[in-house]
């Protein structure tokens, strides 16, 4: 296979061969006139024209609120009040020293690990299943993906009834096999399990959809070659398919992590952070403190901490994980 150097050499030689023909009709001596340098303001104008609207939207709706929130986090401010008291890092100190913070962090960690990890595994399993040539595959794909496009509040309200220990379908099913319904709504641990299940049900279709697209782009010849070499399907999946899905896994790990840490609707519709604050994640705490308690400064401090966590996690992912997934 010719290398780039070979091709370059060929091109140069072609020019060299062609050159003598031009000698017969000598061209006027070519003078080098440097291209007129574009005026800098014109470049800026062009830049502003193309990037301006997007930059303006980003500044107004993303960066300004972000910085505003950072500023508010240094205030003791009742939402709705025209005045506030500067407290420096007081809100941060209050959050880090609050006895309830460890519970909120634990709930957030469990919820995030379970929904991201669980979602990726279950989503991949669904994608593998849906990638096979089965009867009714189209319908199955639609069924798996459909919950993802539903509204979170609607999903929450629906599952509110499903998990009702007196009237819900889960209670009926468990009753049929002689098991009592767990206290989904009265035990903080079961309540957390419940919202995780509902979150997975709603969002696993998204993971499956993206993995499915990635699976369909895995080159068949690689799998055939592995098969000819005697690799079992499991080994082929582990050693060929999974590494090839690396960039997709990386992409999904970031997007699902961000969406999981920001999830709100299902918790609001089903448990409102309870019972006993057993489903109060950091995101839900931001809402509770900001809008229910009206502590806008404290809420902004929690939002800033969550933002910092997300930023650090994403940077770590980009720095260390991304390097491993490119092939």
């Amino acid at each position: 296979m010719p290398t780039i150097e070979d091709l370059q050499r060929d091109t140069d030689s072609a020019v060299a061969v062609a050159a003598p023909t031009s000698v017969a009709t000598p061209a006027p001596p070519r003078t080098f006139t440097p291209r007129k340098k574009k005026k800098p303001w014109k470049s800026w104008l062009l830049f502003l024209l193309f990037a301006g609207p997007n930059v303006a939207l980003l500044v107004v709706f993303t960066y300004k609120p972000l910085l505003q929130s950072l500023y508010y986090s240094t205030l003791q401010w009742n939402l709705g009040s025209a005045s506030a008291i500067p407290v420096g890092l007081g809100n941060y100190v209050a959050w880090f020293t609050d006895p309830g913070t460890s519970r909120v962090v634990t709930v957030t960690l469990i919820f995030t690990v379970a929904t991201v990890g669980g979602g990726m595994v279950i989503g991949l399993l669904f994608a593998v299943l849906l990638n096979r040539k089965l009867h009714g595959r189209g319908a199955a794909r639609t069924i798996v993906v459909a919950p993802y496009v539903l509204s979170g509040v609607a999903v929450g309200l629906l599952w509110l009834f499903v998990f009702d220990p007196n009237f819900g379908i889960t209670a009926a099913l468990l009753d049929a096999i002689g098991v009592a319904s767990p206290p989904w709504y009265n035990d903080p641990h079961w309540a957390l399990v419940m919202v995780i299940i509902v979150y997975l049900w709603k969002n696993v279709g998204y993971v499956a959809l993206i993995y499915l697209a990635a699976l369909q782009s895995v080159p068949r010849d690689l799998l055939e070659a592995a098969s000819l070499d005697g690799a079992s399907p499991v080994r082929a999946f582990r050693n060929i398919v999974l590494p090839l899905l690396g960039p997709t896994t990386f992409f999904l790990s970031i997007t699902t992590l961000l969406s999981s840490l920001q999830s709100f609707d299902i918790i609001q519709a089903m448990t409102r952070g309870g019972p006993l604050e057993g489903t109060t994640t950091m995101m839900y705490q931001i809402y509770q403190e900001g809008f229910q308690a009206g502590r806008a400064g404290y809420s902004s401090a929690v939002a800033t901490i969550l933002f910092a966590v997300l930023l650090v996690v994403t940077l770590i992912q980009m720095k260390y994980v991304e390097k491993r997934v490119h092939y």
């Binding site: 950072l70 009040s81 005045s83 506030a84």
Partner: peptide, 21 residues
């Protein structure tokens, strides 16, 4: 850019000091 936006952010919002009730 961030500095300018931060200044802008600080310009809006509540006034500082208690008692505007």
């Amino acid at each position: 850019v961030f500095g300018a936006t931060a200044t802008l952010a600080a310009c809006s919002g509540p006034s500082l000091g208690a008692g505007a009730g």
